[in-house]
Simulated assay, not measured.
Amino acid sequence: MACVTRKFPEHNKSEVVKEEADEEEMMDTVQSISSAYPTELTELGKCLVKHEETYTGMLILAFTAISWKDTTICNRTASIICWTLLRPVTTGNLLPEAVTFFFNSVLSALQIHGQHEVCNNALTQLALFIYESLRPRYPELRAVMSEVPGINLEALYQFDQKLMDPKATKLGEKKRKDQFRKFLAGTIGTALCQQFKKEVHIKNLPTLFKKPKEVKDMVLQSEPLGLEALFAPTPAAL
């Protein structure tokens, strides 16, 4: 964390948000503020990233930490550190294997922490940043996305078309994030607190009291014995 610092605007964010009446515009305003004042590397961070081995180790550590079974580390690392470290090299020549590693790391973290709303928001935003920044130059990301369980490939194709076409009308950041969240819904696994839950099945208990047997009336319910036919007068006797 000593390598990363976050800049904040001098004016109050709430005052800017209150100027917008529509809820969607309010969300876009808040997100535009956060984009205008992103996290940046400190002088120590800038010094460390000049060394390739150190920089690579920091990236691997950051993108591995988001899969640790600690929601606090996941949230802080995904929202502050990962993109701050990765952003400077997104315009460079990254290996396709490195790009898929970073993206797969986010998907793995979603499988572990996606049930938590705070972690889900941070990881979805990170995945969207990576996909929008690197997808035009790395088609491998499209192949990774197509393997997400339950993803709508037609909707993904349309999303890619708008992303690749500079003249296409871009959706707002909130709508893009919501759409991307739907794409990644299939990666979310079972919560850690539910993974070892033992289902309890209680069988139906036997009745405490036996039902009394019904006493049958032998006279009324007995089958006819043919006595009536024995004493019935015959036509010859008449």
Rank of each mutant, 00 (worst) to 15 (best):
I60S: 03
T64W: 03
W83N: 11
C119D: 10
N121H: 09
V106E: 07
A62Q: 03
L126Y: 04
S67F: 02
D70E: 05
F103D: 04
I80S: 06
I81W: 09
L123R: 04
F102D: 03
L41H: 10
L110M: 15
N121D: 11
T42G: 08
L128I: 03
R135T: 00
K69S: 07
H113P: 14
A98K: 13
Q31I: 05
C82N: 07
F102G: 01
Q31F: 06
H51E: 15
A65T: 15
S35E: 15
K46F: 06
H116L: 12
L86P: 02
T84Y: 01
E117D: 13
S67Q: 15
L61F: 09
A78D: 02
N104A: 10
G45F: 01
W68L: 15
T39L: 00
T91R: 15
C119Q: 11
T77M: 08
L86T: 06
T77W: 00
L61W: 04
I33F: 07
T42H: 05
L44N: 12
L94S: 10
K46C: 13
F129S: 12
E43D: 14
E40I: 08
S32E: 12
T64Y: 09
E52R: 12
Y138R: 04
V49M: 09
G57D: 10
L95G: 02
G92Y: 01
P38G: 07
I33M: 09
L48R: 11
S79D: 05
S67L: 03
R87Q: 11
A65W: 00
W68P: 00
H116W: 01
E40W: 01
C119F: 08
G57F: 08
W83L: 02
H116E: 09
G45M: 05
H113R: 10
R137F: 02
P38N: 06
V106P: 04
K69A: 04
H51A: 13
P96W: 00
R87N: 08
S35G: 07
L86F: 12
E53Y: 05
V118F: 12
S34M: 10
E97N: 06
L85G: 07
Q115D: 11
R135A: 13
K46I: 09
W83D: 08
Y131S: 01
S67A: 14
I33W: 04
N121L: 04
T71C: 03
C47Q: 15
T71I: 11
P136G: 03
A98D: 15
R76E: 11
L123E: 06
L86D: 03
F101H: 12
L61R: 08
W68V: 08
P88L: 09
A122K: 01
L134M: 14
A127G: 13
S133M: 12
T71W: 09
E97T: 11
L110N: 09
S35P: 00
Y138W: 05
G57W: 03
S133Q: 14
T124Q: 05
L85Y: 13
F101M: 14
K50N: 07
G57L: 06
L85I: 10
G57N: 13
R137H: 02
C74G: 04
E132Y: 00
T64I: 01
A62D: 04
H113Y: 11
T124A: 07
T100H: 02
V118I: 14
I112C: 06
W68F: 11
Y55F: 15
L110Y: 06
F129E: 14
C74Y: 01
L95Q: 12
K69V: 08
A98C: 10
N75E: 14
A65V: 04
L107W: 02
N121Y: 09
